[in-house]
């Protein structure tokens, strides 16, 4: 139902890469989300900060894509940190217990320091 597409922004910040998708990650967009995210995960910085500010919500498919991206990122020693989730995403990260397998930060700066 009208979930549209996900827009992506990417920049490098020192030893971190900053990836900022915007949109809804649901059944319709999850496959593309997973594919793009795994590509970004190959940039091989110490940290890949995934800025969640523009993500309205994410189903389990999006969350599972985070794990697949983290596996790809681990091949060159990169850790994915989740920054700035909105209240809905925070709840979803807690319910799925993803906040126990990913570091979640309030700000991008906090993610960089992590």
């Amino acid at each position: 139902m009208g979930s549209g597409e996900i827009a992506w922004a990417f920049e490098e910040r020192g030893n971190a890469s900053l990836v900022a998708p915007a949109g809804r990650v649901d059944e319709a967009t999850a496959a593309e989300f997973a594919e793009r995210l795994s590509k970004f995960a190959e940039t091989c910085r110490d940290t890949m900060i995934l800025d969640l500010e523009g993500i309205a919500y994410m189903s389990s498919r999006g969350l599972r894509a985070l794990t697949l991206a983290q596996r790809r990122a681990s091949e060159c020693g990169t850790t994915i940190v989740l920054a700035r989730p909105n209240p809905t995403m925070r709840e979803i990260l807690a319910i799925s217990r993803y906040d126990r397998i990913f570091t979640v930060t309030e700000t991008i700066e906090a993610a960089q320091d992590d």
Partner: peptide
């Protein structure tokens, strides 16, 4: 399990999560 368990420690244990 929780979704996090199914993709980490308990992956391949053959079960699923509430949110999936």
């Amino acid at each position: 399990y929780s979704l996090a368990d199914t993709v980490s420690m308990k992956e391949d244990w053959g079960h699923s999560s509430n949110i999936v």
